[in-house]
Design a protein around this nucleic acid. Structure first.
Length: 155
DNA sequence: GCCAACGTTGGC
DNA sequence: GCCAACGTTGGC
């Protein structure tokens, strides 16, 4: 079992949007960074747990939990010339970009804001804080539990 | 292989 | 909207 943090802009896809999808599952398309792709391809397994993080939001922060629901497979948008995610260098024989399916588990009782993530000593080694802009990062089991603790704090 | 230009991310 | 960080591209 591995743990991950995946960023999403809530204006595009938020934790609440899982509830509008079939099986509360979303294909995590649009990842266009090789390191993030490699995490999906080489690291993720069905059942891994994922913190869903809202970026470009007010405030930004951790919004809930999801789980990996498929192995990595080619992101279809890369083959679509009309898509903003189209990649002319990608072929169906040798696709560059992958996605996984991600299934809703729960929304936190409250958003855990970035300020609080930064201030938390148990997040001193958090890869998301150390690696600017990387949209998929690994978590330790301990870090995952801290997110759950902070997200379930009452009022 | 170097590195400057360019594009994107994402907090503010 | 600004801009720092930093990954990618392409000329050489």
């Amino acid at each position: 079992m591995h743990y991950w943090l995946m960023k999403t802009e809530p204006d595009v896809f938020s934790i609440d949007d899982f509830l509008t999808r079939k099986d509360r599952t979303e294909g995590w398309n649009g990842v266009r960074n090789f390191e993030a792709r490699n995490f999906m391809r080489d690291g993720m397994r069905v059942g891994d747990l994922v913190i869903i993080y809202h970026s470009n939001a007010t405030p930004p922060g951790a919004a809930g939990v999801a789980e990996v629901a498929s192995a990595a497979y080619p992101d279809p948008d890369q083959f679509d010339p009309a898509s903003e995610y189209h990649d002319a260098k990608s072929t169906r024989e040798n696709p560059r970009w992958l996605q996984v399916d991600v299934k809703f588990v729960k929304k936190f009782d409250r958003l855990v804001p970035l300020d609080e993530i930064r201030a938390e000593p148990r997040f001193d080694e958090l890869v998301m804080l150390r690696r600017n802009r990387l949209s998929i990062t690994p978590l330790t089991a301990a870090e995952f539990r801290v997110f759950e603790e902070l997200g379930s704090r009452r009022g």
